[in-house]
Design a protein around this nucleic acid. Structure first.
Lengths: 392, 392
DNA sequence: CCACTTTGGCAACAGCGTTGCGGAAGTGCA
DNA sequence: TGCACTTCCGCAACGCTGTTGCCAAAGTGG
């Protein structure tokens, strides 16, 4: 809605005022929706580009409508022609592609002990990165300073991109994405109630979007070309200090009303089992971390796989993606163990086994995903934020 | 898309041809979307009605746009004026309400041992009902006959409603909603691969939509005025012959790609626990049904509550609704037991406890929900099917 | 009776995707 | 080399959307 006005008031994306459940649509909405569809197809096509008729086929728009839309996007500098396809007996198709550096976004991953900042272009490619030690347990003021410093350490975006569209911030939950306020971050109770999004937005003079690290990672995976990118629904399971999940359902990041969705680690898999830090007994996380602690990756994977199988049944996901420090340190036993449990479940229900993969992107996965919190709305893949209709 | 052409070819709702991910929008789409918004508000307002400015406020449309839309809907016979609100110092507001019997839909619940058919009006009210013994284990041909007979036993809709918009069919899973084909229904393997939707549609000469009983129930609850109706996300837990769930997430019925979502009973809550019919060990369903069998409702409720707490955390739902024959036979111990577990979880995470309620609607809940499979698209609450733009 | 408030329809309008059509730019055969 | 054919794609006219400006209608309150 509110256009990002460079160099003026820090334009925080308008939180949806009243929950006008599904919003009314008018002509600008329509235009923005279709433009986002076209942009999203071009994003998926990447450097290869796509032709007018392919875009028409993929969106359902008429070729003429695609022509008008691409012309507008060209005038806005977001797309450009990129050669032609070989002729098939007639005039060859003109290819269009996204202009990588037309816009940029910053992704910021605040982890417990380090901060990662990346500058990404429209295609999600990392243009610059910065990593530094960090202490999420320090006083809020110092942490906000350090976070802002990490963003400022990135070079100013080159070319027309200049000023980034905004900053996506990912950090451990619980937190409220809609208000941008942290809750009682596990281990660091002093964050409870701190409006991190607004603090950072004021400090940087840029729009800021806040979300959980697992959600950012899942969003990044949903927008990738490769594995996980083509799946309408998948679960990203993150095993590190704790055990959490990011859910993409029917192509949309699912957060739940209070950004609480994805609390995967505190499902009970062993009634009256060993006590967990949360106060319950027999939680997935407790069993899994205990196995990790005694070096039993296979055992941890079995427990993780049991939880994954339950989740796969409950949500009928197309894929399970594993990530987090513990998994990335030695992925194969986890992948194989979870795969075995999912295959066993498939055999019982005689359905196809849900495929498992290890998250690509390494230690930058979350930071890149955080940048997508800002970029995704351009492509109609996330509700609030900058839409194509704001860019003309 | 395809208008329902009364009295011609059985118009089965067009299955989305190619997965044109999010569909392109044009002016008719826009018009239909906004009309659905207005209809949905009027549906929620019920007999009380709503005024032009209230509709404008609720949808985000301008009052003038609402005027145009209500005029079109009036010409189509879907809405009518219903008095005025008291003046607040100016011209009093004109109230509009849905015309109850402008259209009707049939809901059909095929349970293992009985069939329930209901004829409902636009507001979801039951106009006529029919119930009969039934055997889902009989040969397919006989079952289709019996199902068609139950529909024909309903009186032809009065007034302009005349011919129903379509028939929503709910039955035990697994099945594929998109293709309308049953899979290996537990206990009745001979259904595997039977295109029940198309069989019934040909037999009745009406559009048919097929879904799982739990999904139909959840949809019906989502469209109710009362409890569960106002919640964006909730889980309906159904305890009867088995244990399943229907999920409404962010206001939308979530099915998963292969209509497999909601398999709630086969989550493991007791590693290496007692064997379950599915072949796994320690499933929620096995433990729960065992407790029920030995008359231990409190124990069953505790197990159910453990599963509900896990689900509430994973999906951050706003409410849990309990239903199914076992629960309805004696609701209180189940409600109280599940509530206790959810309260315990809330205390651990210091959040608010997720409220629990028992499904209203009694033995017709599923059949009414099935009718909503046909009605919901009119109100923009379910994707395919008859949209307002087909009615003018 | 009159000033004021509030509702809501009429008419003009900008802008969306659609349709009809024709020129541009290739291929392939004579 | 020339010509018929195929395919792509932009111009122009069009129908229809929600929006805006305006004014009549229908109440209240002094």
């Amino acid at each position: 809605m509110t256009p990002v006005s460079p160099g003026s008031v820090p334009a925080v994306p308008a939180a949806p005022a009243v929950a006008v459940s599904p919003a009314a649509a008018n002509l600008p909405t329509l235009r923005g929706h279709n433009a986002a569809l076209v942009l999203d197809l071009l994003r998926a096509a990447g450097e290869a580009g796509a032709s007018r008729s392919e875009l028409a086929e993929g969106t359902g728009l008429t070729p003429q409508a695609v022509s008008k839309i691409t012309a507008r996007l060209r005038d806005a500098g977001l797309v450009a022609q990129a050669g032609h396809r070989p002729s098939t007996g007639g005039k060859p198709r003109t290819l269009w592609r996204l202009v990588r550096d037309a816009r940029h976004a910053v992704g910021l991953h605040l982890d417990r002990d380090e901060v990662t900042a990346v500058l990404v272009d429209l295609l999600g490619g990392v243009v610059a990165a910065h990593r530094a030690p960090f202490d999420l347990g320090a006083p809020c003021r110092a942490v906000v300073d350090a976070a802002a410093g990490a963003v400022r350490a990135l070079p100013a975006g080159p070319g027309r991109g200049g000023r980034p569209l905004g900053v996506g911030v990912a950090c451990p939950g619980p937190l409220d994405h809609r208000t941008g306020v942290l809750r009682r971050v596990t281990g660091f109770p002093h964050w409870d109630g701190h409006p991190l999004r607004d603090s950072l937005s004021r400090r940087l003079g840029l729009p800021v979007v806040l979300d959980k690290d697992t959600n950012a990672a899942a969003l990044g995976l949903a927008l990738r070309g490769g594995e996980g990118g083509g799946d309408a629904s998948f679960a990203y399971l993150h095993l590190g200090t704790g055990l959490g999940a990011g859910l993409v359902l029917d192509g949309v990041l699912y957060r739940g009303r209070r950004t609480g969705a994805g609390e995967f680690g505190h499902q009970v898999v062993q009634l009256d089992g060993p006590e967990c830090g949360c106060g319950d007994r027999g939680c997935l996380e407790a069993l899994c971390l205990a196995a990790v602690a005694r070096g039993d990756a296979a055992g941890a994977a079995r427990v993780l796989g049991t939880g994954a199988a339950g989740l796969a049944g409950l949500l009928d996901v197309d894929r399970v993606v594993l990530g987090g420090r513990t998994v990335l340190a030695d992925p194969e036993p986890y992948r194989a163990g979870v795969e075995r449990e999912l295959a066993a479940r498939a055999a019982r229900t005689d359905g196809r086994a849900v495929p498992v993969s290890v998250a690509p992107g390494g230690t930058r996965l979350v930071a890149r995903g955080a940048a997508h919190l800002v970029l995704a709305p351009l492509f109609g893949r996330l509700e609030p934020g900058t839409r194509p209709e704001d860019l003309g």
